[in-house]
Amino acid sequence: MPSTSPSNHAALESLAAARWRIGLGLTAAMTGIYVVFILLIAYGKGFLGTLLAPGLSVGIALGVLVILAAWALILVYVRWANDHYDREVAAIRGGRR
């Protein structure tokens, strides 16, 4: 077991907290978007049936938007992790040696 300095331990703790916050935040965002979509399906049938253009109902447009939102949330996390998280992990590893 390699020894760890107090500052190293604190850095890991703050990184763990940041990752948890982001992970939970994005999960909550996805859940929220999806639950609102389902509630609209249940209670807003008329609204979702409104045509924005011939062939394009609000429901279909929102359905595509939910898929795009899932992609966007994934992109947000991957960018944060690739840029920030990986650098912090490398710094903590380096600081220990």
Binding site: L26, T27, I33
Partner: peptide
């Protein structure tokens, strides 16, 4: 079936 994937990734 798609919206579970951000959860898989983030958590």
């Amino acid at each position: 079936f798609l919206v579970g994937w951000p959860v898989v990734l983030c958590l």
